[in-house]
């Protein structure tokens, strides 16, 4: 199952995130070394790499949560360093983030969590506010009675879904997912992948997904980028990744688990 979502433009697709010569480091250690990456509109990009090589660091650098040493990051064609606070906030409204642990506000119910960005940025009637929150909650596959629960009362899968509902609350154009299926059982993970693919299709989202889940990479990602030694060592659709010579990429996509995932697909 592939999503052949095309943009209106023929030929070169629109780049929504453009990272150039990015360097990020902590103390002596340089985690990103002159990293380049493009994310195209409407695609689902799977981002893989060995643990501890800075997949999350890249995501956080793009989101502006970690300062970078040098390089440029452009989002929607605008250099994020050169933006006024107001314009930057405008960009922040156009992306949604699903953090690895969900990062739901523990003092608020699921419904209130989903409504936080709406209340902050939109002037909506109370009725529409409630309806939209419930709509998002249903869209991510939660039962309506979950809406009034606190995050501490939810299971791991429900937390991911609730957090996705919050990420979607402003109808973002880009969705960042940090290991969305980690900690879910295979059926739950499969459903979650399906959900992301459906949402991507209906809402025309661009999805940037950090993942270790080979099944997700096979089923929902249009393109995969592999991080190694602070750089992108390989990128492209699955067949390109399978043909890569890089030893890490080879062992990742041709290992025992990968073969099992491939076998399951045929």
């Amino acid at each position: 199952m592939k999503n052949d979502h095309q943009t209106d433009e023929p030929g070169d697709q629109e780049v929504v995130i453009r990272v150039r010569d990015l360097e990020v480091g902590f103390g002596e250690r340089l985690v990103m070394k002159k990293l380049d990456l493009d994310v195209y509109r409407g695609e689902i990009l799977g981002f893989v790499g060995p643990s501890g090589q800075g997949k999350s660091v890249l995501t956080r650098a793009v989101l502006g949560l970690i300062p970078k040493r040098s390089g440029t990051i452009e989002v929607f064609g605008q250099d994020v360093d050169k933006l006024s606070t107001e314009r930057r906030r405008g960009i922040e409204q156009r992306w949604g983030v699903l953090f690895q642990q969900g990062a739901l506000f523990s003092a608020l119910t699921v419904r209130q969590n989903v409504q936080v960005p709406m209340r902050e940025y939109l002037k909506l009637s109370d009725r529409l506010l409630d309806e939209l929150a419930m709509l998002k909650i249903e869209m991510v596959g939660l039962k309506p009675d979950a809406a009034d629960k606190l995050p501490s009362e939810l299971s791991g899968g429900m937390i991911k879904r609730a957090s996705l509902a919050r990420a979607l609350s402003l109808d973002p154009e880009i969705l960042f997912l940090d290991e969305p299926t980690s900690g879910l059982d295979p059926i739950g993970a499969g459903e979650f992948d399906e959900l992301i693919a459906t949402l991507q299709r209906t809402l025309g989202l661009t999805v940037f997904m950090v993942t270790h889940d080979l099944d997700s990479l096979y089923t929902v990602c249009n393109r995969i980028a592999a991080l190694g030694d602070g750089r992108i060592i390989a990128q492209g659709p699955m067949d390109r990744m399978l043909a890569s010579d890089d030893p890490w990429v080879r062992s990742y996509f041709h290992g025992k688990r990968a073969r099992a995932a491939t076998a399951a697909r045929h």
Partner: peptide, 11 residues
């Protein structure tokens, strides 16, 4: 059109 617009239309 996004979910908000679609929701209001369908409502």
């Amino acid at each position: 059109l996004d979910t908000l617009g679609a929701w209001v239309l369908d409502r």
